[in-house]
Amino acid sequence: MQRVNMIMAESPGLITICLLGYLLSAECTVFLDHENANKILNRPKRYNSGKLEEFVQGNLERECMEEKCSFEEAREVFENTERTTEFWKQYVDGDQCESNPCLNGGSCKDDINSYECWCPFGFEGKNCELDVTCNIKNGRCEQFCKNSADNKVVCSCTEGYRLAENQKSCEPAVPFPCGRVSVSQTSKLTRAETVFPDVDYVNSTEAETILDNITQSTQSFNDFTRVVGGEDAKPGQFPWQVVLNGKVDAFCGGSIVNEKWIVTAAHCVETGVKITVVAGEHNIEETEHTEQKRNVIRIIPHHNYNAAINKYNHDIALLELDEPLVLNSYVTPICIADKEYTNIFLKFGSGYVSGWGRVFHKGRSALVLQYLRVPLVDRATCLRSTKFTIYNNMFCAGFHEGGRDSCQGDSGGPHVTEVEGTSFLTGIISWGEECAMKGKYGIYTKVSRYVNWIKEKTKLT
């Protein structure tokens, strides 16, 4: 034993070699072989497995989906700052455009905790909710729209109204504003409101030439003092309507412009014939205590009207009353817009006519005020429907199939267009061939041609 100890002390290297040989010859039971080890760690190889990531292109799944990435790591994937920024906006807080917040056709661009709407022409605001041009839906104005110097929408209202708090709607500024039905039992019968379409306001006024200088022999019209197929109006439903009495009662109609003036057809009036105007009328054979009678003290036909040349060209006249009318729910003026808007309103496509005229061709006159909704007829169809001249200051309205029309005794009465609950004068009943005849239409004086003249002559002093 002493000898062994001496050998170990003198030859430590020998001992180490012996131990190493023993270990190498022993069977290893701690580690699995290569094949079995792979069965336990069965993990798919990654895209760049075996390579240094710093030297390969980034992978979106590896960089940002398996674990949260930084902007720089995302930049490695896209290799483009702009594309990385677009991805980053949604990656950080989701897609803010998912709810489609942009209105009126706006395009949404996502941002971090926010979004941006790219608005089409005519709109602005956070969600493109603000109209900035009158060309689109009248700028959301209830009545009139004008573009300011910086191309912003400025709404306005006709006389007797003021802008509401929203700067879009119009509200009454006087007790009985024009064009409004205020009798409670008839307010439910107000005709369907007309909503502004998209309009090209630059070209809204037709490029028409008034044929002022045409000389033409007097034409022989049949029954051209021209509501057939209409309905009984309720008291106060058309408070701007008046009836004219002269040699015979209810020979023509008219509309209240203001307390002192009536507008009617020029062919209705004769110099030297006494005319009485009755406002607030409903049943011409009954006294309903809503009527107001006034005498006409002055007749002003349009300066281009000449019955000797043509009885229905420039067929418009103004009547001055001896005493002002007292405005109330049964006696209310009709609204008159400017030339541009009167023309736009007419193009809405349908209007209402009213009167006490004959209820059928050569038949009896109506006792109760009649009204009828009539569609506008395109000019080409209008011209083809008659052998008589249709001037540019006239328009056609009615039904091709016949059966409904204005008729004798309705002449001078109103053709009105309702705009968001307020009625505007767009025409004056003038003439036609018979009444409600198939293929024939009622012919009306186009008020847009005469609004400046009306307003100039009827100013209240």
Rank of each mutant, 00 (worst) to 15 (best):
F238M: 11
A308V: 10
C145R: 02
L130Q: 13
A279F: 02
L19E: 02
F121W: 10
V199P: 13
K39T: 09
S354H: 05
M8L: 12
T85R: 15
E281K: 12
V273E: 15
P177R: 01
F123I: 07
I40N: 04
D33N: 08
V359P: 06
W118A: 13
G351A: 09
C178F: 01
N59S: 09
H34C: 06
H361Q: 06
K109W: 06
E86L: 12
R358P: 08
H361K: 14
M6F: 12
I390W: 08
T287H: 05
M6W: 14
T186C: 05
A317F: 00
G50D: 10
G160P: 01
N306M: 06
D150Y: 08
C407V: 05
A366F: 09
F424M: 01
W88N: 03
A233F: 07
G432F: 05
G351T: 03
T81S: 09
K274T: 10
D405W: 09
F424A: 02
T133R: 08
C28S: 12
F176A: 05
P175M: 10
Y450D: 02
P197V: 12
S148K: 09
R75C: 04
N306S: 05
R379C: 07
N258M: 02
G253V: 14
Y47I: 04
G442P: 04
M394L: 07
K446P: 04
M65W: 09
G427N: 01
D378I: 03
I262F: 02
L211Q: 15
I275A: 04
K339G: 07
A207L: 11
E165T: 15
I262R: 00
D315Y: 00
I299S: 12
G230D: 05
S169T: 11
I443E: 02
N5C: 14
W261P: 00
S217N: 10
A250G: 14
T445D: 01
E66H: 05
F345A: 04
V227H: 07
C407T: 04
K234F: 12
S99W: 07
H289F: 13
R83H: 12
P12T: 14
D131E: 14
A233H: 06
P44D: 08
H361G: 10
T381F: 12
C102M: 01
Q241E: 04
Q370E: 05
G105F: 06
E73W: 00
L244T: 02
N313G: 06
F71Y: 08
E98D: 10
P12I: 11
S329W: 05
Q219P: 15
Y371N: 08
V416P: 00
C97P: 03
E281G: 11
H34A: 13
V174P: 02
Y441R: 03
S70K: 05
F123H: 11
L211P: 09
F176N: 08
G229M: 15
T332W: 02
G179C: 02
K247Q: 14
